[in-house]
Nucleic acid binder design. Structure first.
Lengths: 185, 185
DNA sequence: CAGATTACGTTTAGCTCTAAACAGGCCTAT
DNA sequence: ATAGGCCTGTTTAGAGCTAAACGTAATCTG
């Protein structure tokens, strides 16, 4: 095939295929199969995150807070979850959740209570975090916009393509999880 | 057989499908097509990043430094790039690259020079970052391990599945890029 | 040429995260 | 009962990042 320019002057970032090819050329024998999977996943993650952050800035909320309020909102009435449960559904540590809750509480978006809203309890020293009216209003407003926006980003794929991608991502996720098997903290 | 002393709700995080279903139930009419794509991409990104960080800790290097040295190493001889070119190929800002280079320089892994190693020049006030012997040795050692490890994580997919996934990710990346078209770096 | 403009890299303030130490409620066993 | 062990949640020090201001070299303009 045609050789590629050694240093492509000012363009888009090197494609994953180019990176893999570069390693095969520079260090033959090194396994490069993962590069074309892992690199685009990281880049897409950043593209989605950046776009979301840009959209949320206008709404006066950040992605971390949106994430917190979302988890509580979509749990349904009475819109309250324990800190532990919130942590389990998020991608960050318990300490980070504690800080997120403190910030959101300072903004009047959530409230903390050591007693459950029902008589239901985890049987342990649980702290229940619930949405205030302001928090409820804010999440209602922002989620719709964010999801509409992101749907538009994904709509370039046909329905079969999207379904196929979802299936493959799902399969890969399960396999990576069981292979790393480290506490997915 | 197996005893179940666990707390009721301690399982894996909600699947993306469950999250989408929850939104359709709680706020009908909101578009949820993107959730099953974006969520697994973020989760996979974190799984790969965490695994890589764990592996690198043993080798005495962090992911940010690996990334820096990798870009320079795979560019081939004479193993030197300008800061601008490094930034273009990374997912972080120019300020972050400057700090990464400073840290790596402090560890004796790279060197900075205001003059090009060749007579080749970008025509502007370029700073060339090049690998030291120690940096070269370190990257040689770590990249092989990281890629071998990550190849094993991806090998659960069959070859056609992997190719199909790569194609879909590529297509999605291009479309998201042209739809957001934002600065994104 | 001088002045303005542009391109590149660095510095700085502030933010959010992680890891680890800490604090305290609940439970079981002796 | 009480001692000790677990389970939850919070706090804290430190790391690395971003955004924006800054310094400076190269280039354009009149």
């Amino acid at each position: 095939m045609a050789e590629e320019p050694r240093t492509p002057e000012s363009g888009p970032p090197s494609s994953a295929a180019e990176i893999a090819a570069a390693w095969r050329r520079e260090q033959p024998g090194v396994p490069t199969e993962s590069i074309e999977v892992v690199t685009p996943i990281w880049r897409l993650g950043k593209l989605f995150a950046d776009d979301r952050a840009r959209a949320l800035r206008a709404a006066g909320i950040d992605a971390a807070t949106l994430d917190l309020l979302s988890v509580i909102r979509r749990a349904g009435p009475p819109y309250a979850l324990t800190t532990r449960e919130i942590t389990r559904r998020a991608l960050v540590t318990a300490g980070a959740i504690s800080q997120r809750v403190a910030r959101a509480e300072g903004q009047g978006l959530v409230e903390r209570a050591t007693h459950p809203p029902n008589t239901e309890d985890t049987g342990l020293r649980a702290v229940w975090v619930s949405l205030t009216d302001a928090g409820h209003a804010l999440i209602e407003r922002s989620v719709s916009e964010v999801l509409t926006r992101e749907a538009a980003l994904v709509n370039g794929l046909t329905e079969p393509e999207r379904r196929s991608l979802i299936t493959l991502l799902d399969k890969l996720t399960h396999q990576v999880r069981e292979r790393t098997d480290g506490p997915a903290r």
